[in-house]
């Protein structure tokens, strides 16, 4: 009975997602491509783009380098600039795709792993599907300032060497940040990805008032880190928090049952 219940719930969820998520707009799946293989090999994956709308679209496919700053922000660069780039390894059969209304297309993404590629270091790039404006998108404005808005999908592309499989992250520091002008307070956590693959993690902060025993659980913060990189995250604290608190940081990593736990006492 329980299994049937689970099945029905799953069915409803998938149907609901399909109807809401795919029917009325332009969708892309997956949103990240993880390639693996040995130097010298050529590997491929499909990206599915679906146009459930009544409009026709044209997308330009282009690739850029990117890295992530320590606050988690992605920064894009022209292809081939960064050390860990794989922009030059990526290709698609077409540079532009026409996506008529109510149609689906598969785009084959090919990665040619160079013979001299590192067998230990990950590489990355970002494949963009950029909407190209059409004649009818032009502004009907006789005078004034006008903005024409278009949209773009960014698809992460990673190459993970075949032998890389270590999922790990280290908590470097946990600090209360100085009180801001608006009296807001926060706890800053610094992490380091000491594994060998991309680490997707959720960072939780639980605070327990040492006098009253009151517990505060803050909304987890999601992050994604390349191996060998640092990331700083900030948990904003509730307004007017005051007193001595015991803080517990829990880092839950996707693809692993391991947790990382850190503890620190605070006085706010």
């Amino acid at each position: 009975m329980y299994n049937y219940f689970k099945f029905v719930l799953t069915f409803i969820f998938i149907q609901g997602f399909a109807l809401v998520g795919f029917s009325q707009g332009v969708s892309m799946s997956p949103t990240r491509l993880f390639f693996t293989g040995n130097p010298g090999e050529t590997v491929t994956q499909n990206v599915v783009i679906h146009n459930g709308s009544a409009n026709d679209y044209i997308f330009n496919i282009n690739v850029k380098d990117w890295n992530r700053e320590e606050d988690g922000t992605k920064v894009y660069f022209e292809p081939g600039i960064l050390k860990q780039t794989n922009s030059a390894w990526i290709s698609t059969l077409e540079k532009n795709i026409n996506l008529p209304a109510k149609s689906t297309q598969e785009v084959l993404v090919t990665m040619k792993i160079p013979a001299n590629a590192s067998t230990v270091e990950m590489t990355n790039s970002m494949l963009f599907f950029t909407q190209i404006g059409k004649q009818k998108d032009e502004l009907k404005l006789d005078k004034g300032i006008g903005i024409i808005a278009l949209f773009e999908f960014g698809l992460h592309v990673y190459y993970t060497p075949a032998a890389s499989n270590s999922v790990s992250v280290d908590i470097i520091s946990i600090e209360a940040t100085p009180k801001q002008v608006d009296n807001s307070q926060a706890v800053a956590i610094r992490l380091f990805n000491d594994g060998s693959v991309v680490n997707d993690a959720a960072v939780e902060l639980e605070l327990t008032n040492m006098d009253s025993g009151e517990e505060i659980k803050l909304t987890p913060i999601n992050l994604s880190m390349m191996p060998g990189t640092y990331q700083n995250i900030t948990h904003k604290l509730p307004e007017n928090i005051k007193g001595k608190y015991a803080g517990v940081i829990i880092v839950k990593m996707a693809g692993s049952n391991d947790l990382r736990v850190g503890e620190k006492s605070f006085e706010f």
């Binding site: 949103t31 990240r32 992605k74 300032i145 903005i147 960014g154 698809l155 994604s224």
Partner: peptide, 10 residues
């Protein structure tokens, strides 16, 4: 006029 592009990515 000018066009602006909004990019959504994981």
């Amino acid at each position: 006029t000018q066009t602006v592009t909004y990019t959504a990515s994981a």
